[in-house]
Write a protein that binds this DNA or RNA. Structure first.
Lengths: 385, 385
DNA sequence: CTCCTTGCCGAAACCGGTTTCGGTGTCGAT
DNA sequence: ATCGACACCGAAACCGGTTTCGGCAAGGAG
């Protein structure tokens, strides 16, 4: 073996095998202080807007720091302040199904809102709830993040309990059973479900079915209530046999959808609480010989891009995931900065993407029906999407 | 306004409006040192495996720290060592098209490999290359990450230049024109293209077209070379009129695919360098009255899940994005730890998902052709996917 | 028995910031 | 002229680790 001159000459003794890596050339707060002819404490306070620094000095220091390209080292600040200017998001791959389509938009929304405030986003993945809380605990212990974005709020959410107990800021995407102490952002899926029912009722439908998500999630509770409320408001009570809950993916959507269609004189319309349920329902309808948009009306919720590619194109309420990410990030940052949770709750609306799957008439013979839908279909497919 | 007793009594003067937040109850290295009856320096060296600490002491300290639940504060270490144990990934939403389907798997791979070493992943998004390098610069300046994962390697990549110049570790997903000084991981797309050509040639095809990606990316160069090499090896030269490059999404795939099909006596088979190109080609073929799998063979590359839902199901070479993420993360961590780039280059293989889009015969009349493909189609669709 | 290693650990400096505390200088009021 | 009150800033402690350096004790060589 060739003698390693640098190592042999090195006076260090017990160092483990890791390069030193003293990154050079950074401009520190001391450099700014020297250049300004002030002490580093004064510079720090000036930069952070303390009121006991003269306004003129403050401005001068800020300009100087800017000109010198000074950027405070996040971790150096963190050690004293306890804040790293980082948000954490944990993706649960156990039920990643839903993540896929809008993940990029969602991340983009978060990341941009964070960047605007000079914060960053750290993401981790976990497999199952237990793994998820464990991962959160690790991030908390190492102070790798100042707060958490908790997507897909559960009816009873252990992640919330963890955050509450450890007193670490968080924000829910969705609501939970008891929102005491919680900041949250959500899309009013329940309003969309009500609108869907009303829309179908106005078209004459009375026999409306409902494919709901899993009660594990809060949204399923809200949307179920919205469905029964809306039908009641429209003056009829839904047939319980046409209601199925617990859809989690396309397969279960197809299965439960088939059950509804197999019921005695199935519904003339079905409201789906999730697009994957609708996609499954398309499959079930094909098998059952029902033609969506012709003798079965379908309105769904989520706005997955795939909906446009279905035949017939799916009418659905679309959620803006980029906006959701953006809102969640801003709210969480405000939370970390100390604003009370009561001020940090926002509800946004879904927007209808009217395509053609909901255009089946409530009654009438096959000939009349096809003539009618034909016309509507043409009109819609121009405006839709 | 109610008098705020705590604020009035507070002796602090120039504090800006930000809660103090002195997170309590953490067990620090001092606690461990006290409990062990050692100095904190000794504990630190014991924990980090310095050789000048007695083996027995080392073990004792490690066990004690573990029992006490001690976790070193990442940023406190970072301030001295210069390492935060964090990887950075920047998603470019400018051309995010391709990201969507496998993003979740990719992130999961990275995140898990990072977690295994107690590292974390910070992600940011950018719109366009300029924004991307600017974001990287910010992360570097603030030392928010120790290294970068650079997805979608460009033929000439400014991100690489930035990293090289600033001497910050990075790893490419894909190769670049000149890999001097670069660590990289890649899937051998070129091998897949060669295999695709060979497969078609063995089935009798000689009139093979090629839909390539944009030359902006290195993979397009490699796959183009692979295509010409493979055809030459099979003993024929491809018709240049049947080759189109620059596909970036489904729309451009459809457009360029249509051009190929419109050529004088179009090809009997087309190799696509990306699945989105194939998806566009499906559209173009339908318009042109060609039936994929019957009078046009198609083999593609990427393994997007959508391929299975196409009619006919797409034969494609699938890349394991979770594995890619995992490999990239591990390699980058090793890089940060000081291993030379020459040791940090890995090439993995894509795996064929044989479905039915490639089963169109090279020659023969319509009757013979349909009888033949019918049989093969049945056999395949059982085994495929 | 001395001297020189070697093994092992404590003390203290250090990293780059933030925050506390006290000390000037100025000014108006007494 | 004296005495606060106030505005403004410097000095130093501090955060939680890592790393350097020196010192003590044990052991082997001379």
């Amino acid at each position: 073996m060739a003698p390693d001159a640098t190592r042999a000459r090195s006076p260090v003794r017990g160092k483990p095998a890791l390069k030193p890596l003293p990154r050079p050339g950074r401009v520190t707060i001391n450099d700014v202080a020297d250049a300004a002819g002030l002490s580093k404490g004064t510079v720090s306070r000036a930069l952070n807007g303390y009121s006991d620094i003269a306004a003129g000095t403050q401005l001068r220091v800020k300009r100087l720091a800017d000109r010198l390209g000074y950027r405070p080292l996040a971790q150096a600040q963190a050690i004293r302040t306890g804040r790293v200017r980082a948000l954490a998001l944990i993706l649960n791959t156990g039920n990643a199904d839903m993540h896929r389509p809008f993940l990029a938009d969602f991340l983009d929304g978060i990341s941009r809102a964070a960047s605007d405030e000079n914060w960053t986003l750290t993401v981790a993945t976990a497999d199952g709830l237990q793994d998820e809380t464990a991962t959160m605990a690790r991030l908390i212990d190492e102070r790798k993040a100042d707060g958490f974005i908790l997507p897909r709020a559960l009816w009873r959410d252990p992640r919330v309990e963890l955050c509450l107990e450890r007193e670490v800021p968080f924000i829910l995407y969705g609501r939970t059973r008891d929102t005491e102490g919680c900041a949250w952002f959500d899309i009013a899926g329940e309003a969309a479900i009500e609108a869907a029912v009303t829309r179908l009722a106005e078209a004459g439908h009375k026999d409306i079915g409902f494919l709901n998500g899993s009660r594990e999630y809060t949204f399923a509770h809200l949307r179920y209530a919205a469905f029964t409320d809306a039908t009641a408001a429209c003056g009829f009570t839904p047939n319980p046999a046409w209601i199925r809950e617990g859809v989690t993916d396309e397969a279960s959507g197809a299965e439960l959808g088939a059950e509804i269609l197999a019921e005695q004189g199935g519904p003339s319309a079905v409201v789906c609480a999730l697009d994957v349920a609708a996609i499954g329902l398309y499959d079930a309808a094909r098998r059952a010989g029902r033609r969506i948009g012709h003798d079965l009306a379908v309105i769904s919720y989520d706005g997955l891009p795939q909906g446009a590619a279905l035949t017939p194109p799916l009418t659905t309420y679309s959620v803006d995931n980029r906006l959701a990410g953006k809102s969640l990030a801003s709210l969480l940052i405000r939370r970390v900065r100390g604003e009370p949770v009561e001020d940090l709750r926002e509800l946004a609306q879904a927007t209808l993407i009217a395509r053609v799957s909901d255009l089946a008439p409530a009654t009438g013979g096959a000939t009349e029906r096809s003539a009618l839908t034909q016309k509507q279909t043409q009109k819609r497919s121009l405006g839709g999407l």
